[in-house]
């Protein structure tokens, strides 16, 4: 019963993410979904500023170089002018929830019919592991060296829940990567999110809790353990909203 499995051909090269970084898995899931949905030749991916900038020249699909956090705005016009194209905004949590909070929320508010995948690794990876709005209470980062003080900086932000509860969008889910089963669930969320776009139901967003071993100062396996023990209790996994197809 074994089926062949091969990295999608649209991934041209290995991306130089750190050992154990979740980006590599999520990018592969995204490209698998695009391939399986038959959109290899009718797709545009919005690339953010952050670690995913390393995707430069890595994908053999049209890849838009977004400005810091602003892909919510840029994907809006692309999707409106090219409604038949699959438009996917691939963003880190710093990009989508900090600097691009306004653009991310406004696109969801308008129910723009594109798909957002956010990689939540609880810090600004590319710039050296500074505190993000997703950093956990007490988390040591480059800008919270004594641990995040939520009295001064607020509690970690849960954007998927905010969007699901406030805006009339099509699909919101949160997945993770700590077991093969979780990876498969995350893939199913990404695929459903893209399907919601293809069906014209509305805006879709999938957040993925992803390890950042380098900046967390943990081994890859210990990073996955941290996700299970510390992050999942605060960032619950599963579908948060599913309006269903047409």
């Amino acid at each position: 019963m074994a089926k062949g499995k091969k990295v999608p051909e649209k991934i041209l090269r290995q991306v130089p993410f750190c050992p154990g970084c979740g980006h590599g898995i999520i990018v592969r899931l995204m490209m698998e979904c695009i391939e399986e949905l038959g959109y290899n030749d009718n797709v545009l991916i919005g690339k953010p500023v952050g670690c995913a900038s390393l995707l430069d020249n890595a994908l053999a699909v049209d890849t838009f170089t977004g400005a810091h956090g602003r892909n919510g705005a840029s994907m809006t016009t692309i999707k409106r002018l090219k409604p038949d194209m699959l438009v996917v905004s691939y963003q880190g949590d710093g990009d989508a929830y900090n600097i691009g909070f306004s653009e991310t929320m406004n696109a969801a508010y308008r129910n723009e019919k594109f798909t957002v995948i956010t990689i939540n690794n609880g810090n600004f990876g590319m710039t050296g592991g500074q505190m993000a709005w997703t950093s956990m209470p007490g988390q040591v980062t480059a800008t919270s060296v004594n641990g995040r003080n939520v009295e001064l900086s607020g509690m970690p932000i849960r954007v998927p829940e905010m969007i699901a509860s406030s805006f009339d969008t099509a699909y919101v889910a949160r997945g993770s990567l700590f077991t093969p089963a979780e990876i498969k669930k995350t893939k199913s969320y990404i695929k459903k999110a893209m399907q919601a776009q293809i069906d014209g139901v509305g805006h879709s967003l999938v957040e993925v809790l992803s390890p950042c071993p380098t900046n967390w100062g943990l081994t890859p396996l210990a990073s996955m353990e941290r996700i299970v023990n510390e992050l999942v209790p605060y960032f619950p996994l599963g579908e948060i909203k599913n309006k269903g197809g047409k």
Binding site: A67, N71, S74, E103
Partner: peptide, 9 residues
């Protein structure tokens, strides 16, 4: 935001 929309368009 309007300008990033312009950028996308």
């Amino acid at each position: 935001e309007a300008m990033y929309m312009v950028y996308g368009a």
